[in-house]
Nucleic acid binder design. Structure first.
Length: 575
RNA sequence: GGUCCCGUGGUGAAGUUGGAGUUCACGCCGGCCUGUCAAGCCGGAGGUCGCGGGUUCGAGUCCCGUCGGGACCGCCA
């Protein structure tokens, strides 16, 4: 139907006959003897000159044949890649008419309510931004596939209808017609299957796997999302990092991103220095320990505190008025801190703060020195337990300093040595697993499992990019005895473990190799590469925050007959 | 489950102290126009101010509820 695409023609084609197909991006009529039609496809736009009246409207689908001609010097368009040429003596064939679109098919629609864009997603995707994002996503997927395969990974598909394992994220469940009253679950991840593939001798497995979790949606979370899911046998965690890192960096290269290295940091360092387990290393504002500075203080809020830390919001003193500072304090308290101390560094270097009078000159001097304070800076200090102090300041640091997603550089980070357990369940008194219960403890800490479980590090790790958690993984437990110990610690009896995970645990009796793996969130990775704050911008047909699709109206009620077949009765809505 | 923000012709916005569905830009329809490129000029049409209730002589505006959208907390082993 066509000889070229709309973004393809250049001065080198001058003199050739060309046939283009596409949509009318705009039409400019000058009486009955001259009209310009900008024809658009996913590759770009070409100006077509028509020497007669032509009744076309925006988004009409056309086939235009003409001769490629150089544009007169004064009418070149440098904003178009094809702006040096135009198609002349055009014959226009209308392949289809179109109603006016509900919003313009251009960058102007960036301002349109997202719901309207989603309702007419097929029009939204015609836009350059969405075309770019979806094609970027395809390139990333493709690069990841070849990177994995060149490292010996085998793509194996795993089922979408799986047994329910109620631990972890809430599952979507699917009723069984042949076994009324029984249900499948949609997989939160192929976790159990991929480990069984290691028992099965696949050695290196990967899959671009769709995962489903029935948890509330966010800018970086959808019910269904795509994961590079991988698992490797006979490896330690550095082997996994190398393999996944190679795939991520190959994806970055395919996305046209500059080369970058992947750093490594322990979980403890991440919390201690940045107050979060997914630090954004693009900016400083690190947490500085001030416990020593205020070791002998008479200021009651600080005296006797386990950990005192501060951050320097450089140059923020002027823009942070009383209202905003109160907002920060509220936020700190909401997280659980007793309070937040703020101090502004005045032009003469003195500290302005409601609490300055409680701090001795020595303390003020040491504080300024520790935080490298200069006039115009805003200093924020929290005194509390170590974890609370870190968490509060980490949150404020992100709020005050985090650059928008499209700003470089790219700072990839492995966060390692996560604690095996995060706190103690208030009800059961049992330690709560930080990752999943199949995670191998750090070999140096296995002895402390029963005696001091909260001190045990695990061989779990996250990959972080610019403050986004791209994914996580671990070296798994492959010895049944150690697995039993961990289950007992979590309060899961052998019998219960057998009941819930029997299909998964029993195979490990038949010669399970040491293994470990990773799951990498493709949507987030592509969003960052695309410079998008929101993963919906890199998903063709995403759901809204309440889990609905404005285009298809899913979810919808179903016919009573369908429910009858499944043995399901729907309760009336709660009053 | 919770906190905050938003909802006004097809689209995006403005709408002051409660005083006539008012305004602006784009789009749409008609006309004019031979070098435009988000063409230009002239004219025109287009509204359940998300929905329901309340206060009031009078509500886009104030109050309550509800629906929808977004950001976040909880949640996401």
């Amino acid at each position: 139907m066509r000889t070229h695409q709309c973004g393809e023609l250049r001065p080198e084609h001058i003199g050739q006959r060309a046939t283009l197909t596409g949509w009318v991006a705009s039409r400019r009529e000058h009486g009955e003897k001259l009209a310009f039609v900008d024809l658009r496809d996913h590759t770009g736009v070409t100006q077509c000159v028509v020497d007669n009246a032509v009744d076309v409207r925006p988004e009409y689908v056309l086939r235009i044949t003409g001769v490629v001609a150089e544009r007169p010097a004064e009418s070149r368009n440098d904003r178009l890649a094809t702006g040096g040429i135009e198609l002349q003596d055009c014959v226009v064939e209308i392949l289809n008419v179109a109603e006016p679109p509900p919003f313009p098919v251009s960058e102007r629609a960036d301002q349109v309510a997202e719901n309207t864009r989603l309702q007419h997603r097929y029009i939204d995707i015609r836009r350059e931004r969405m075309q770019r994002n979806l094609r970027l996503r395809a390139s990333v997927n493709s690069a990841i596939r070849s990177a994995m395969e060149s490292q010996g990974f085998v793509e194996v598909e795993t089922p979408m209808l799986v047994p329910s394992t109620p631990e972890g994220a809430r599952e979507f469940i699917v009723p069984s017609r042949q076994q009324p009253g029984s249900f499948y679950a949609l997989p939160q991840s192929p976790q159990l299957f991929k480990q069984l593939l290691m028992v099965a001798g696949i050695d290196r497995y990967y899959q671009l796997a769709r995962c489903l979790r029935d948890e509330d949606l966010r800018a970086d979370r959808q019910y269904e999302f795509m994961q590079l899911d991988a698992e490797m046998s006979f490896v330690d965690q550095n082997d996994v990092h190398r393999a996944i890192g190679a795939a991520v960096l190959a994806a970055a290269a395919a996305a046209g991103q500059p080369e970058a290295a992947i750093e490594t940091m322990t979980w403890h360092d991440a919390m201690n220095r940045f107050g979060v387990d997914k630090p954004d290393l693009r900016f400083g504002m690190e947490l500085v320990d001030l416990t020593e500075v205020f070791g002998a203080t008479e200021f009651k809020a600080f005296a006797g505190a386990a950990t005192i830390k501060g951050i320097n919001a450089t140059g923020k003193a002027d823009e942070m008025g009383r209202n905003k500072l109160d907002g920060l304090t509220d936020k700190a308290k909401k997280i659980g801190a007793k309070g937040l101390v703020w101090l502004k560094v005045a032009a003469d270097g003195s500290l302005e703060s409601p609490v300055a009078k409680f701090l001795s000159d020595t303390e003020q001097g040491a504080l300024k020195s520790a935080l490298s304070a200069a006039p115009g800076d805003l200093l924020l200090i929290v005194a509390d337990e170590w974890s609370m102090t870190c968490e509060v300041l980490g949150t404020l640091r992100n709020d005050l300093g985090r650059p928008p997603v499209h700003e470089g550089p790219y700072r990839y980070l492995w966060v390692v040595d996560f604690p095996m357990f995060i706190g103690v369940d208030e009800v059961t008194g049992r330690p709560k697993p930080g990752h999943h219960p199949f995670t191998q403890p750090h070999p140096d800490d296995v002895e402390m499992l029963e005696t001091d479980p909260l001190k045990v590090r695990s061989q779990a790790y996250d990959l972080v990019l610019n403050g986004w958690e791209l994914g996580s993984g671990s070296i798994r437990i492959h010895q049944p005895e150690l697995q039993a110990r961990v289950f007992r610690l979590l309060g899961i009896s052998d019998e219960e473990a057998q009941k819930r995970f029997g299909f998964f645990l029993n195979p490990f009796k038949y010669g399970a190799p040491p293994h470990g793996g990773f799951g990498l969130g493709i949507d987030r990775l592509v969003a960052i590469f695309a410079g998008e704050e929101n993963i919906r911008e890199v998903i063709a047909f995403p759901k809204t925050q309440s889990g609905m699709d404005p285009m298809t109206n899913a979810p919808t009620p179903v016919a009573q007959k369908q429910l009858d077949d499944l043995g399901i009765r729907v309760l009336p809505p709660k009053a």
